[in-house]
Design a protein around this nucleic acid. Structure first.
Length: 585
RNA sequence: GCCGCGAUAGCUCAGUCGGUAGAGCGCAUCCAUGGUAAGGAUGAGGCCCCGAGUUCAAGCCUCGGUCGUGGCUCCA
C-alpha cells in the first residue's frame, strides 16, 4: 500500500512537472495528493484554456519524464527560504501553504525535486521516475475544485488520473468503470422505460412511467409491509405547511434556503413544501395527551418531500428535488430505545438480505466540534454512547465517523455494497433527544408526572428514488421476478395458435402469487407483433423480462410451454405452470 | 451556487469553409406465419433546446436563459 501511495504521489508531481514544462509561467500549483484510485493536482491556469483533449499531450509529456528515469530528490529548506522560493517563482498558493506551516511553528519544509521541478511535499515518493510501471497510469478527467475546499476561494482546475501497480490492475479498474457505465441507472431508466425528465417539468423532478411506477410501488409496499409487521401504523401528512413548524423544529435556520415556498393568492400567507416529515409527525403525537402506556408510538409513511437542491448537485435519481421517503418515527421512553432500534436494525437487515444486498456496513455518524448542532453536549455524548452500544448488541459491522450526524442527533447509517463493489448509503436510524423537547412533546408517567419522549427517525430505503438508482445499478436492470414491472412475456410463434395463447393467459390471470413479496396478480403481456421469433426474443431480452414463454404448434401438441429464463431454458407442462411460477425467485 | 463540457428525427449520433439537414436503430403500412439475440419492401417523421445579436445568409459565430453532464461545495 505504501508503495502504491508513493507511486501515485510521485505521479502527481510528474503531472505537475509536465504541466510546468508545457505551460511555463502559466500554471500555479495548489495541492496534488494521491487518492483511492490514483492522484490529482489542483492547478490554476493563468490565461490558458486547458481542455479535456489536452490531457493526451500532458500524458505523453509525463511518460517522457518517466522514461528519463530522473531522480526524485528529497531536501529540506528553512521555512523562510521556502517562502522566498514560493514568492520568487510566483507560486502564490504554495506560499499560502508554507505560511500556514510557519504559523504552525514549522522550522523547515520538506521538498522533492524532479529535474527542474521543485515542489513541497511530505512524500512518500519513488526514488526515480523510471520506477513507474509501464501502462500503470492514465489521465482521466478535468474538473473544477475550490482552493482549500472552500466555496469562497479561487476555482482551480483539478486534473485527475488513475494509477495502479500494474497495467493489468489498471485495466481491471477501467473494465469496472466500463461496467458501471453500462449499468448507469440513467441509461437503463431510458432503455427499460422506467422514468424520464421533462424540461417543462423541471430539473431534478423525475417522472416515473408505467413500468417505473410499478417498480416503485413494489418497493414501497415491501418497505411498508416490513414495518407494519413491526408494529408501525400508517399516517398521512399534507405536503405544505406554515413555516412556523420548521422554525420550531430548527430546520428553518439550518435549511431555510432549500425550502420551496408556496404563497396563498388569497391573503399572501406563506407556506413551505415539506422537505422532511418528522415535524409533521410530532404534531400527530402532540394531538392528544399521551400516557406511558401508549408508548412506543410508531408511525410510518411513504411520502414525497421537496428540497430546492442547488442545481449543480442534481443527477439522475440519485439527487432529486422531489424525493419520496419511506419514513418512520418512533416516540418512546429512554428504556425502550434498545428494543426499538434493534427492531429497526432487523427491518434493515431483512430488507436488504431479501433483495440480495447482503453486504451491509453501519456508519455510526457522530457530531464534530462545528456549530450547527442543536442540544447540549451531555445529551449528545449519551446518545452517541448508546448508538455504539446498539451497534455492538445488534452485531452490526460498523465504523465511526465524526461530522456526519444530523443536526438533532447521531445516526446509524447503513451502507450497502452493490454487485460491482461500490458502497452506497441506504437506510438510516437516528436518535433524537432534541426535537421532542423543542415541540414540547410529553407523556404522563407512572407517577402522573410529565416526561419528554425520545424520537427515533428511520428510513429503510432512504429515498425511493435514490434507492432505485442503486438497485437498478446493482441488478443492471435484471430485476427479480417479484418486482419486475413486466414479469412474463408470451411470444406466440404464429397467429394460428391464438387459442392456445388464450389458454395460457387464462392460467396466468387465475394465478395469484403467494410469495409475500410478490403477493398479487401476475404482470404479463403477449407480443402479438408480426415479427420473427428471433426478433421477439431479442426484444424481450433487451427489456430484461425475467420470464419469456414461447408458444408454438409443438408446444400446443405436447401441452407444454417453452420457458426461457435469463440463464436457462426448459419445458413445463401446462398443468404445472402455475406451480412453477409460484416458485420463481 | 461555482469551474468546465454539451444539446441536431422517438433513441444513438454525423453534419467540412456560415449557403435552410443526414445515417443506423425505432415507428407506420404491406408482404412473409416463423422454433430461441435483427425476415423483406415501402413510407412517415426536423421550431437543428429557447431568446436576442452579428451577417446578404446562422445548425455552425457572439451574448443571455433552459436542460443535461464531469468535477467542487452542500446534503434534514
Amino acid at each position: 500500500m505504501e508503495k502504491l501511495a508513493a507511486l501515485r504521489h510521485s505521479l502527481a508531481h510528474i503531472l505537475a512537472s509536465a504541466l510546468q514544462t508545457t505551460y511555463p509561467d502559466k500554471v500555479k500549483f495548489g495541492t496534488g495528493p494521491d487518492t483511492e484510485t490514483g492522484f490529482y493536482y489542483d492547478v490554476f491556469f493563468d490565461g490558458v484554456d486547458f481542455m479535456e483533449k489536452d490531457l493526451k499531450t500532458i500524458e505523453k509529456q509525463m511518460w517522457k519524464i518517466v522514461n528519463q528515469n530522473l531522480e526524485i530528490k528529497y531536501f529540506e529548506k528553512p521555512v523562510d527560504q521556502a517562502l522566498a522560493w514560493a514568492k520568487g517563482s510566483g507560486q502564490t498558493f504554495k506560499h499560502e501553504l508554507i505560511s500556514d506551516l510557519k504559523a504552525e511553528g514549522e522550522k523547515t519544509v520538506d521538498f522533492y525535486q524532479i529535474g527542474d521541478f521543485i515542489d513541497l511535499c511530505k512524500g512518500p515518493h519513488l526514488a526515480h521516475t523510471g520506477e513507474v510501471p509501464k501502462g500503470s497510469f492514465k489521465l482521466t478527467r478535468i474538473g473544477g475544485a475550490y482552493w482549500r475546499a472552500s466555496e469562497s476561494r479561487e476555482q482551480m482546475t483539478r486534473v485527475s488520473g488513475i494509477a495502479f501497480e500494474s497495467e493489468k490492475e489498471l485495466k481491471a479498474y477501467l473494465d469496472m468503470m466500463a461496467e458501471a457505465e453500462k449499468r448507469d441507472h440513467r441509461k437503463l431508466g431510458k432503455e427499460l422505460d422506467l422514468f424520464t425528465f421533462s424540461p417543462l417539468v423541471g430539473a431534478g423532478l423525475p417522472l416515473f412511467t408505467m413500468r417505473g411506477g410499478m417498480l416503485r410501488k413494489k418497493f414501497e409496499d415491501f418497505s411498508l409491509s416490513l414495518r407494519a409487521k413491526a408494529g408501525f401504523e400508517r399516517v398521512w401528512t399534507p405536503h405544505i405547511t406554515k413555516i412556523d413548524l420548521y422554525k420550531t423544529s430548527g430546520h428553518w435556520d439550518k435549511f431555510g434556503d432549500e425550502l420551496f415556498m408556496v404563497e396563498s393568492k388569497v391573503n399572501g400567507e406563506q407556506f413551505a413544501m415539506k422537505p422532511m416529515n418528522c415535524p409533521h409527525h410530532t404534531q400527530i403525537y402532540a394531538s392528544r395527551p399521551r400516557s406511558y402506556r401508549d408508548l412506543p408510538i410508531r408511525m410510518m409513511e411513504s411520502t414525497t418531500d421537496y428540497r430546492d437542491e442547488k442545481t449543480g448537485e442534481l443527477g439522475g435519481l440519485s439527487r432529486v428535488r422531489s424525493l419520496t421517503q419511506d419514513d418512520s418515527h418512533v416516540f418512546c421512553r429512554h428504556e425502550q430505545i434498545k428494543t426499538e432500534v434493534s427492531a429497526l436494525a432487523n427491518i434493515v437487515k431483512n430488507f436488504y438480505s431479501t433483495i440480495g444486498m447482503n453486504d451491509l456496513r453501519a456508519r455510526l455518524s457522530y457530531r464534530d466540534d462545528s456549530d450547527g448542532y442543536l442540544g447540549e453536549q451531555a445529551i449528545w455524548d449519551e446518545a452517541q454512547k448508546q448508538i455504539k452500544e446498539l451497534a455492538i448488541e445488534n452485531k452490526l459491522e460498523f465504523f465511526e465517523a465524526e461530522g456526519e450526524a444530523a443536526f438533532y442527533g447521531p445516526k446509524i447509517d447503513f451502507m450497502a455494497r452493490d454487485a460491482i463493489g461500490r458502497e452506497h448509503q441506504v437506510a438510516t436510524i437516528q436518535l433524537d433527544f432534541v426535537m421532542p423537547g423543542r415541540f414540547g412533546l410529553e407523556f404522563v408517567n407512572e407517577e402522573g408526572k410529565k416526561e419528554t419522549p425520545v424520537m427515533i427517525h428511520h428510513a429503510t430505503m432512504g429515498s425511493t428514488e435514490r434507492f432505485l438508482s442503486v438497485f437498478i445499478e446493482h441488478t443492471a436492470g435484471h430485476f427479480p421476478f417479484w418486482c419486475a414491472p413486466e414479469q412474463i412475456r408470451i411470444l406466440p410463434i404464429n397467429d394460428q395458435i391464438s387459442d392456445y395463447v388464450a389458454k395460457i393467459e387464462k392460467v396466468l390471470e387465475e394465478t395469484t402469487l403467494e410469495n409475500p413479496l410478490a403477493h398479487n396478480d401476475l404482470r404479463f403481456t403477449v407480443d402479438t407483433r408480426s415479427e420473427s421469433l428471433g426478433r421477439k426474443i431479442k426484444d424481450a431480452i433487451a427489456m430484461k423480462i425475467p420470464v419469456v414463454l414461447i408458444l408454438g404448434d409443438k408446444d400446443k401438441e405436447e401441452g407444454v410451454v417453452s420457458i426461457r429464463l435469463k440463464d436457462k431454458e426448459e419445458k413445463v407442462k401446462l398443468s404445472d405452470l402455475a406451480n412453477y411460477l409460484q416458485n420463481l425467485k
